[in-house]
């Protein structure tokens, strides 16, 4: 299975990754190699195998519905690039 340069650019955009144009073909080749491996694995007969969502045979532990966190806004906002009136400020995103 081979990934096109266009598909690589799309995947990079979806992940918000900036990639250098001259490396697109290398990425396409490398990613295609991974997909080839997956394709190879897919030839194994798995009819009797249940789909796996997690490698361990354990289930999720649940926590009680209790509020345990107190506001640490001041600490968190010290590392934010911009804040005002308690809000985190980000570049305008409205369409």
């Amino acid at each position: 299975m081979s990934l096109t340069a266009e598909e690589v650019r799309k995947i990079a955009h979806l992940a918000r990754l900036s990639i250098q144009e001259e490396k697109v073909q290398t990425y396409a080749d490398n990613l295609s190699g991974i997909l080839d491996l997956v394709a190879q694995m897919e030839t194994v007969n798995t009819d009797d195998v249940a789909p796996m969502a997690h490698p361990q045979e354990v289930t999720q532990r649940l926590r009680e519905d209790v509020v345990t966190e107190t506001s640490q806004r001041e600490k968190f906002q010290q590392i934010a690039p911009a804040t005002e009136a308690g809000l985190y400020l980000v570049p305008k995103v409205i369409e």
Binding site: D65, V66, V67, S71, R73, G86
Partner: peptide
């Protein structure tokens, strides 16, 4: 109508001052 969030222990009460009920998990630190 839970008291705390689905994946963290921060309160879900409506109308609090901005970001006072957003803990490290909610901020995805």
């Amino acid at each position: 109508a839970t008291r705390s969030k689905i994946f963290s222990g921060a309160s879900t009460a409506y109308g609090a001052a901005p970001n006072t009920q957003a803990c490290a998990v909610d901020l995805a630190l």
